[in-house]
Design a protein around this nucleic acid. Structure first.
Lengths: 203, 203
DNA sequence: CCTACCGATCGGTAGG
DNA sequence: CCTACCGATCGGTAGG
């Protein structure tokens, strides 16, 4: 017989994670108390600390969930068929879809970059850096083959493209204030982001 | 005789503002206590609250300083001579220089967008929105004249360009983890950002 | 999963 | 510009 966890405990961990994700994205780490997370999920604070031994452990679990979700998107897309242009387009679309699915994801990553750049750098270095370097290398190859613009700076382009994909969704709310309020639905942001990066990338 | 403020008091207000700016950019609003600001500037907490009546008032003063600085950059540049392409290039350069001068600026604005999107929207709407709408309008005109790409989505382009200019400097630290650590000095980021937006903008 | 409680720190005030 | 102090809340623990 396998050890049988309390049937309630599996959904409870997920419920805590979901509540914490939303509150951390909305109010940040320092702006979110364990008490308020516990209230939202219908527990006392010590009970919450039974599922996650500390506030920082809960933060890490939230980030792990997001990054493992993102890590599932990238390999699937980079193995796809087609030339470099097709693969770039598909990668951008899948990445933006991942963030569009749940806007908390982009906001949480942005917050983590601001709050804890070194810690996030390590995490990114471990999981995403290999894919980024592959991307950078394919840009260099594309320049040699003449499909990619000669003036393009591969490392800087990758950094800016990542910033664009993140920013488009995390900052959409504030953008509404910059312009004429209405319009600017996520779809238009997504299509223009793709058009801009493609225009800047390919000959 | 004009009322003569205590000669110490003018630099003290500025010293508090400078310390608060740096600490709010680094740790965020909830992550920065009045006590630590007071310590850094060599005051007791109640004395700090004599210069700024509340923590929120201090936050607003910090943001006011940044936005009035930015508001000085934009009109100067938009009145410059040259065609639309020259003006776009100059505007981007001046904006990026403004953020490069002090990286706290971009980080602080990004944090404010995340923490308080509605409040920031109002502030942006009051000061920056007219300039943004002028920019958007000139994009529409450029499309009619054939200098600007037909496929360009003006509102979305403006939003993404702003996100790029902000992100390039606020996220530079984390970007170092994504790529091969070294290299990626601000200058390269700035030049590539300009190249990308120009390539996406003009025929 | 709970009650009860810990020391530390929070923003802010009283009063001089 | 200070000392002294306020109630509230923080993350976390003891113990069951």
């Amino acid at each position: 017989m396998k050890p049988q966890p309390n049937p309630e405990s599996v959904p409870m961990r997920a419920r805590i994670l979901a509540a914490a994700t939303q509150m951390l994205a909305e109010n940040g780490y320092e702006g979110t108390s364990l008490q308020r997370i516990a209230d939202k999920v219908g527990l006392r604070k010590p009970s919450l600390l039974h599922h996650f031994p500390s506030k920082d452990a809960l933060r890490q679990a939230v980030l792990d969930t997001i990054f493992s979700g993102w890590a599932q998107v990238l390999p699937r897309v980079l193995k796809s068929k087609g030339d470099g242009q097709d693969r770039f387009t598909l990668t951008m679309r899948e990445t933006m879809n991942f963030f569009a699915e749940d806007k908390d994801r982009a906001r949480l990553i942005l917050r983590e970059i601001l709050d804890n750049p070194d810690g996030l750098s390590k995490r990114l270095g471990a999981t995403l850096a290999p894919w980024m370097q592959r991307f950078t290398a394919s840009l260099v190859k594309g320049k040699d083959a003449g499909t990619v613009r000669q003036e393009l700076d591969p490392e800087a382009f990758v950094a800016h493209t990542a910033a664009l994909a993140l920013g488009a969704f995390a900052l959409a709310d504030a953008a509404r204030g910059l312009l004429g309020d209405d319009q600017l639905d996520p779809n238009r942001l997504q299509e223009e982001c793709l058009r801009m990066t493609r225009a800047a990338l390919f000959n």
